[in-house]
């Protein structure tokens, strides 16, 4: 605001002017609905989640065991050669603590998110998922974790068939 101008002509708008319709506005909520075909690779992946298993696809050229699976190896640009189950255990690659929801409101309970490199898959291959049964201050890089699955009858073939990953307690000698 310029210091020289002390008095502005007209009237400042208040939020009540919008609420009470004194300022014309047009509101519209888009109706956009999608149903993406999962396809060959992710379709199989979701079917296996329903059975409580995690499946990868393999490339015979570079030898990678890739999860989530795909029908092509993006590095070699060739079709994948087969399927291979990987374990539902893995290692924390990186993590964060999300204190906010998507609308920027503060969550009562923060969400613990992590990249989990799965055992049996190639390096830097795994899932992004939530962590549970762990305090945020206890999470560490390289921590071993294991999937906690929903009960069989509740699984629908979705990434949320895994509730979260929890730390594997080291056996005490």
């Amino acid at each position: 605001m310029s210091e020289k101008i002390k008095d502005y002509r007209g009237e400042a708008l208040k939020s009540a002017d919008f609420k009470e319709g004194r300022v014309p506005t047009e509101k519209c909520r888009p109706k956009a609905k999608f149903a993406w075909s999962a396809g060959i690779a992710i379709g199989r992946f979701l079917e296996e989640l329903k059975k409580g298993k995690i499946i990868a696809s393999t490339c015979s050229k570079c030898g990678r065991i890739m999860v989530p699976p795909r029908i092509y190896c993006e590095n070699c640009f060739k079709p994948t050669d087969g399927w291979k189950y990987v374990k539902d255990t893995g290692t924390i690659n990186t993590y964060s603590v999300s204190y906010l929801a998507a609308d920027a409101s503060r969550l009562k309970e923060p969400i613990l998110v992590a990249i989990i490199d799965l055992d049996g898959a190639s390096k830097n291959m795994g899932l992004i998922h939530k962590l549970g049964e762990v305090d945020k201050d206890e999470i560490k890089f390289g921590m071993k974790v294991k999937a906690v699955w929903k009960p069989k009858e509740e699984r629908v073939g979705a990434i949320t068939d895994i509730k979260y990953f929890k730390p594997i307690k080291e056996a005490t000698p």
Binding site: C28, K31, K33, F34, A35
Partner: peptide
């Protein structure tokens, strides 16, 4: 085109109309 993935194609096309002057 994966038009079949878009369940409300015409609603999305309608959304390209001017929101103040045409869409209402």
């Amino acid at each position: 085109s994966k038009a079949s993935d878009l369940l409300t194609l015409m609603d999305v096309i309608a959304f390209a109309l001017d929101p103040v002057l045409n869409r209402p």
